[in-house]
Design a protein around this nucleic acid. Structure first.
Length: 943
RNA sequence: GCUCGGAUGGUGGAAUUGGUAGACACGUUGGACUUAAAAUCCAAUGACCAUUGCGGUCGUGCGGGUUCAAUUCCCGCUCCGAGUACCA
């Protein structure tokens, strides 16, 4: 019987689903001793309308191989899948078509599921989660409430219930506490606190809560009535419709992730993530040690706060630069400078933050007309504004030391400001001196002749004595804005009483998304939920009621923003642990204790500083409040690279004429994307299909090459619908089978690298599958002998076991596939069909190609699924060699090979090698200067 | 700009701590089988020179360095990709 992958794959996919073969056992399911748990998780997909392309399953195949491998090793494996189903694309589609995002999301999920099912993943689908389902987001809302009801105590270094700080305030005020809070919080005593009105107390508490309302800078697009992400802005205008965008302040929910900066940083040390990923997070958190310095204004009772990592260069500060958005700018600008400053601010508001950071060449800025006082010399220092200083970064102000910072240097040169040199014997006329090594401070009074580190300490001491500053650790990590002016996201469980937020109690959750007639912002610029008629909270009945009932006594308006995409994905790993009690808790204690956290997480590196930081933050928070016991979500993490598409282009030389790409033309040919499905592996265009594709190609004329073909050119690009280079896994499954798809995706290259998809290569793994099948068959019949295997066959098997075990542990799946090929090629040439070899081989390959493995396993006479079969164990004895083929090199270049016994000593090897006539020929009469012999490795003759 | 990756034959890639560069595949060429095609099998295949044979030179993005020996380690570049805080 020939290898019929269609039948085999359909058969086993059905059996797996019917028998729930891959259902993970819950702790309470174990009658006897519990199996050790192992949790393998993929970053869950956003179900887009385009469906899966071959790039998506790459990581899923890798994690599936590992999950299956762990089952063979005797672990109880949790390997779930779900959908990150809130998001912008569904909302955009809803705006365009009027269809409810819930409906299109449901359709997309259905399609994703069908596609995933065809690839033979060992997912436990009973545990599926969808972030957009109310039963799930009930608990996202609950976590938000808990954050609202918590503050961060730096002394205990953990989050605590907000009630505790209220007690502290009423006993001792806020003067001696060490907690995370807003920068500008006012001091009060216990008596003052107790005398405050409830409203005032609430306002103050917002400065301490782990989620809080605050004014934040956003990219506002007045024409679209919405806030845009930086990457929705192209050249200063909106991507959709090219409307102007301005920076604007808006009241938004934020998450006090900055409170966790140090723990997020320290926690990295114990994670099994790549160094580069950990380094990215470290840089993102951006810890720097330095000083906070105050500059008093010359003529006003105000001070400007700056943070600097180089207080040793403070005598070189010749001006201050404020971000144009800085609160003090309006107050300190003199009437003469007002027009210039206002114009500059308007100009700046049109530039995105990213543009301002990236563009170092154009130097802009304006003098405010005011002066501050140098804290140590009392000299006047001009105050400028410049858009190279960002409002959200540090204090939004810098003390400019042009001799020690390149951007300050550029700014000073551009505006002809003084550049005092504070370094001994260093020329700073051309560029700033930014290094600390081999540096001595000069022109700095009491800091003269000191090295930077000593000078930093001394400068801070001086600032502290004058009450003009103090040592400070600063983090680049900013609090995360948590409000979105969108429809398709989790509603906040929040209503407003006199403008102050109140939380809806957990027992009344979920607060479900209301219906709206359109998914656009309202005419007066409120978010889409502003269009809902029934979006008010009745505090007596505890239910959502019509807006008309709002009386601000018992019925209040609800929050109109929704939560961002990362809300649901920050805790979903815990939801999969629970199966039965999903309505009672986010996950039961028993399940949480057993599964703990994710052992292996696979996903794209684009999540390095977003999702992976936010979910670490929420995990630490949940632990602080006692809801879970682990403080990191993902123990080990592997990044998968992107699979790129190979776009095809037809070459057009005039309105209707297309030329084969191998022909030269006098006219410049225009390259036009063409659907890759019209092109075969030899780059020949299917002319008929092309003509039918679109009306404008119907009457196309072609200039063919000598073979009578029209060839296309190829380019590697991102796989995307708009580039017509998408390859659908369904098509690959139809033509080659899921097992071949799985093997090929792994065979393409290292899991973490991006690489182009090339369908031509599929025939290689496909013929491997046929060879594998052939090993177990004679003609059309299954035939496996009980005779002992040859020495060579056993050696091939054990070499494969060894290599494979190492490869799987190192996630080097491309070389695993190679070693399977080598093994099967050897066994075929050995004509090996012994059960002794073929049975372990089936298990070895089953994580990679599970369908064929199950089929062969069944034919081998087993009635249980192969998925729990014990993984073969490597035995050294089958590999022992007594000779080694030595490369004999001369000056490092290999010239010939020599088989020698491994028992030989160095001297013996040297004698044999030197006696060889080829050695004498290479030396050509010379005497070698040196002979290097590494037994078992190499011989190198120098001279 | 900043941060983190990457670059090896015509193509995807291999080379475990510095020790035979190009495993395994694709493609190409030639051959076997076949009426023919497909499938399958066998052989060759980094470039250049030489070719009757032995062989030789160069070669892992570029320029330097360390070493008996460098794809691997160090210094300085170039190009490409990802992230850059509201895409997911």
């Amino acid at each position: 019987m020939a290898y019929n992958f269609k039948e085999i794959e359909a058969k086993w996919q059905k059996k797996w689903a019917d028998n729930k073969t891959f259902a993970a056992q819950q702790p309470q399911d174990f009658k006897e001793k519990a199996k050790p748990p192992y949790y393998v998780l993929d970053m869950f997909p956003y179900p887009s309308g385009a469906g899966l392309h071959v790039g998506h399953p790459l990581g899923y195949i890798a994690s599936d191989i590992f999950a299956r491998y762990k089952r063979h090793q005797g672990f109880n494996v949790l390997h779930p899948q779900g959908y990150d189903s809130f998001g912008l694309p569904a909302e955009q589609y809803a705006i365009q078509t009027g269809q409810h995002p819930a409906k299109t999301t449901e359709d997309n999920i259905k399609r994703y599921r069908e596609q995933l099912d065809r690839i033979g993943f060992s997912f436990d689908w009973d545990r599926e989660v969808r972030t957009s389902s109310p039963e799930y987001y009930k608990w996202t809302q609950w976590i938000f409430s808990e954050l609202f009801n918590s503050y961060y105590c730096h002394k205990a270094d953990q989050a605590k219930p907000i009630d505790e700080i209220i007690k502290i305030f009423s006993k001792e005020g806020n003067i001696n506490i060490n907690v995370a809070c807003d920068e500008n919080v006012e001091n009060f005593s216990a008596d003052e606190w107790n005398a405050f009105s409830n409203e005032k107390k609430e306002e103050i508490l917002l400065d301490y809560r782990l989620t809080y309302l605050a004014e934040t800078e956003v990219n506002w697009c007045p024409a679209l009535g919405t806030v845009l992400a930086n990457d929705e802005i192209i050249n200063g205008v909106s991507e959709r419709g090219s409307h102007p965008v301005v920076r604007k302040k808006m009241k938004q929910w934020s998450m006090r992730i900055s409170a966790y900066a140090e723990r997020l940083l320290q926690g990295l040390n114990k994670l099994d993530w790549t160094d580069s990923l950990k380094e990215s997070q470290r840089n993102w958190i951006g810890k720097s040690i330095g000083a906070q310095v105050f500059f008093n204004l010359k003529d006003q009772d105000q001070k400007i706060e700056v943070f600097t990592t180089r207080p040793d260069t403070i005598f070189g500060a010749s001006f201050l630069t404020l971000a144009p958005e800085h609160d003090l700018v309006q107050k300190i600008t003199t009437p003469e400078q007002k027009e210039a400053v206002d114009n500059y601010i308007t100009q700046t508001s049109k530039r995105s933050e990213r543009e301002r950071m990236a563009d170092v060449k154009t130097i802009t800025g304006v003098f405010t007309g005011s002066y501050a006082e140098h804290p140590l010399t009392n000299e006047p220092i001009p105050i400028w504004i410049g858009d190279y200083v960002l409002a959200g970064y540090g204090t939004g102000a810098v003390m400019a030391v042009p001799s020690g910072d390149q951007r300050d240097h550029d700014f000073a040169r551009h505006f002809d400001l003084p550049i005092p040199n504070v370094f001994k014997n260093i020329d700073i006329s051309e560029k700033a001196h930014t290094e600390q090594d081999n540096t001595v401070i000069a022109n700095s009074e009491f800091l003269n002749d000191l090295e930077p580190q000593k000078a930093i300490r001394k400068a801070i001491e001086a600032l502290e004595n004058k009450k003009s500053g103090y040592a400070k650790i600063n983090y680049r990590l900013r609090d995360a804005v948590f409000s979105r002016q969108r429809y398709w996201g989790e509603p906040f469980p929040v209503y407003y009483v006199n403008g102050l937020p109140k939380i809806i109690e957990t027992k009344y959750l979920p607060l479900e998304l209301p219906e709206v007639e359109k998914y656009l912002p309202t005419e007066d610029g409120a978010p889409p939920l502003g269009r809902a008629n029934k979006w008010a909270w009745n505090t007596t009945t505890n239910e959502v009621v019509h807006n008309s009932e709002i009386d601000h006594k018992t019925v209040f308006p609800l929050e109109l923003n929704t939560m961002p995409g990362w809300a649901g994905s920050s805790w979903y790993l815990f939801r999969y642990m629970e199966t039965e009690n999903r309505d009672k808790c986010f996950a039961s204690e028993e399940a949480l204790d057993y599964w703990e956290n994710v052992d292996l997480y696979i996903g794209g590196s684009e999540h390095a500083t977003g999702h992976l930081l936010y979910s670490r933050f929420w995990t630490k928070f949940l632990k602080d409040r006692g809801f879970i016991k682990v403080d990191e979500p993902f123990k080990k993490l592997i990044n998968q690279g992107m699979i790129l598409g190979e776009s095809a282009f037809v070459h057009r030389i005039d309105a209707n004429t297309y030329i084969s790409s191998d022909l030269k033309t006098e006219k410049e040919a225009l390259k036009i994307h063409v659907d890759v499905s019209f092109v075969n592996t030899s780059n020949e265009l299917d002319i008929e299909a092309f003509k039918k594709w679109r009306p404008e190609f119907e009457n196309a004329e072609f200039i063919k090459n000598d073979d009578g073909k029209v060839l296309v050119s190829r380019e590697v690009e991102k796989m995307s619908k708009s580039k017509f280079n998408v390859v659908n896994p369904d098509d690959v499954c139809d033509e080659y089978g899921a097992d071949s798809l799985r093997l090929f995706e792994m065979f393409l290259g290292p899991i973490d690298q991006s690489k182009p998809w090339n369908t031509a290569g599929l025939s290689g793994v496909s013929s491997f599958m046929k060879k594998l099948w052939k090993l177990y068959h004679k003609g059309d019949d299954f035939e496996v002998s009980e005779n002992p295997a040859s020495k060579e066959a056993l050696k091939a098997l054990h070499q494969t076991i060894k290599k494979l075990t190492e490869d799987i542990e190192n996630f080097s799946f491309n070389t695993s596939v190679s070693s399977f090929m080598i093994c099967v090629n050897t066994l075929l040439s050995e004509k090996c069909n012994s059960r002794e070899v073929l049975e372990p081989l089936a298990i070895l390959i089953s994580p990679f190609a599970p369908h064929i493995a199950e089929e062969l396993w069944e034919k081998l006479g087993h009635t249980e699924s192969i998925s729990q079969a014990k993984f073969p164990v490597f035995e050294e004895k089958f590999l022992v060699e007594d000779t080694k083929t030595y490369p004999i090199s001369f000056n490092g270049k290999m010239r010939f090979k020599l088989d020698l016994s491994l028992d030989l000593s160095k001297d013996e090897i040297e004698k044999i090698v030197m006696a060889d006539e080829r050695t004498q020929k290479q030396l050509d009469g010379r005497t070698p200067k040196k002979v290097i012999i590494v037994p078992g490795k190499i011989v190198n003759i120098v001279g």
